[in-house]
Each structure stands twice: as structure tokens, then as C-alpha cells.
């Protein structure tokens, strides 16, 4: 509905997510787990070849030979599946189990991306895929024809739940980081501060121009931050002149 203000949609969503994040890691993890069962089911359902594919439509993609495909692999790995998270996070985490789980999740995401791309190219053809603004929607519409009507709505519902996931995880992380920076804050207050910031954020009316400016600024800041951070930490380590000690907590984690 056009006249409903965006805050009416976002406020209940944010409050629910905040209420989850406020209650700590266990509650957040359980919620994420529950929602992910639905998400995983959808992922595996979408990887079934329910529509008949025309491999002739896929094969011209290989006209530049295998080397053309191989050249696309690094780009895909870094830009789409999110493998850079390994480079960013795992220097600070020493846990083999967490590493294995992350690798498995990334592998699943890459597999899902690859299989759906093949399916979409195989059913729509390369030319139509390039023409349409949202090829997945077109593919899902055909899926609906084969499976049941309005299948795309199921996809959108799962998508919305994944957003709930993402918001709660981010809120929990933000509150935790606040407590890390200011150790005197207690959990309730840091959560409240995060809520206030988010409320201010959703109160700003969403206009595409403003959004794109914000996204550009934030991504630039994030890029610089993540690019410079390892060097800063290295500098700190050199200045302190210590090699770093293994703490007991870290050993337990690993």
C-alpha cells in the first residue's frame, strides 16, 4: 500500500529482532536455526530439476572454451558467495570447527548459486536472462506452473525471514561490540543504544538517491576499514614487541 509509512512496516520488525538480540547469543542462535530450516528446505527444493532444461541453451556460454569459464571463477568466489569472510574473520578466530562450518556453508551457497544459474540459463536462455530485470522471478513463475500456484510468494516469505535473521544477528553483534568498546556498559543499555540508533535510521524516509549515497559511503568506509585494520593490528603488535600468547579460552575454542 502506497500511503502506509515505512516506519509502520519496519518498527514491528525491528522490535521483534531487537527483542531476540537483546536476550543473548543462545536465543539469537536458536531463532536463526529455526528460520534456517525453512531456508535450507527452499534451497534444496530450488536445486531440484523440476522444469525440463534445454542444455542447448547453456552450451553456447562455453563458446570461449573452458578457460573462459575458469576466468570467471575467482570473481564469483569473491563477489557472490562471500568467501572473503574467511580472510576477514578467521585471522581473529582460532577454531577449526567454526572454520569447517563456514567452509561448508560457503560451499553450499556457491553450489546453490551455480545450480540455479544453470537452471535459469537452461530454461530462459542467455538472451532473455540478460533482458529481464529479475530473471529469478521469471524462473520462479515457471516453477509455479509446474509445482503449485504462487510459489514465488513462498520464496519471498523465506526471503523476509532471512532478513529477520540478518537483522537480529547484526543487532546482537552491534550490541556486543559496544560492550567491547565500552566495558562499563551493561547488556541492557548497550542493546537500548543500538535500538535508538536503528530507530533513527528507520525514521529517515527511504529515497533511492539517499539510499545509494549512504550505501556508497558505507561500503567505501567498510572497504578502507577492513583493508587497513590488519595493518593497524600488525603495527600494534610490532610496537608492543610481543609475539602474542595463546590464552586458555582460545585453546578451548580450538
Amino acid at each position: 500500500m502506497e500511503r502506509t509509512p515505512q516506519i509502520a512496516f519496519l518498527l514491528p520488525l525491528v522490535l521483534v529482532c531487537w527483542n531476540v538480540a537483546r536476550r543473548g547469543i543462545v536465543v539469537t542462535a536458536r531463532t536463526v536455526e529455526l528460520i534456517n530450516y525453512g531456508g535450507m528446505t527452499l534451497i534444496f527444493l530450488l536445486m531440484l530439476p523440476i522444469l525440463d532444461l534445454d542444455w542447448d541453451l547453456v552450451r553456447p556460454v562455453l563458446d570461449t572454451g573452458i578457460s573462459g569459464v575458469l576466468r570467471g571463477i575467482p570473481l564469483t568466489i569473491y563477489s557472490i558467495s562471500g568467501s572473503e569472510i574467511i580472510l576477514l574473520v578467521f585471522p581473529f578466530v582460532r577454531s577449526k570447527r567454526a572454520f569447517a562450518i563456514t567452509v561448508a556453508a560457503l560451499a553450499l551457497a556457491t553450489l546453490f548459486y551455480m545450480v540455479t544459474t544453470l537452471f535459469i540459463l537452461g530454461t530462459l536462455g542467455l538472451e532473455l536472462t540478460v533482458l529481464t530485470p529479475w530473471p529469478l522471478q521469471l524462473y520462479l513463475n515457471r516453477f509455479a506452473f509446474a509445482l503449485f500456484e504462487r510459489f514465488d510468494v513462498v520464496f519471498l516469505i523465506v526471503w523476509a525471514f532471512q532478513m529477520v535473521n540478518l537483522i537480529s544477528i547484526n543487532m546482537y553483534t552491534a550490541a556486543n561490540c559496544l560492550r567491547g568498546v565500552y566495558p562499563r556498559l551493561d547488556a541492557q543499555r548497550s542493546a537500548l543504544i543500538v535500538l535508538m540508533l536503528v530507530l533513527v535510521g528507520i525514521a529517515i524516509p527511504a529515497r533511492a538517491a539517499i539510499q545509494s549515497i549512504i550505501v556508497k559511503q558505507f561500503s567505501l568506509a567498510a572497504l578502507i576499514y577492513y583493508g587497513v585494520l590488519p595493518f593497524l593490528l600488525l603495527l600494534v603488535a610490532i610496537l608492543r614487541g610481543k609475539k602474542g600468547e595463546d590464552r586458555d579460552e582460545q585453546k578451548e575454542m580450538a
Binding site: 500500500m1 500511503r3 502506509t4 509509512p5 516506519i7 509502520a8 512496516f9 518498527l11 514491528p12 522490535l15
Partner: peptide, 18 residues
């Protein structure tokens, strides 16, 4: 929290109709 949530839910109803 309950009051806030309920008021939010009321907020999201019937701004517009189709």
C-alpha cells in the same frame, strides 16, 4: 514491551485500502 509491540502492530494496520 507488550504495550509498545501492540501499538506498533496497530500502527501497521489500515493506513490505506485497496
Amino acid at each position: 514491551a507488550l504495550c509498545l509491540l501492540l501499538s506498533c502492530l496497530c500502527l501497521s494496520a489500515c493506513w490505506d485500502q485497496r
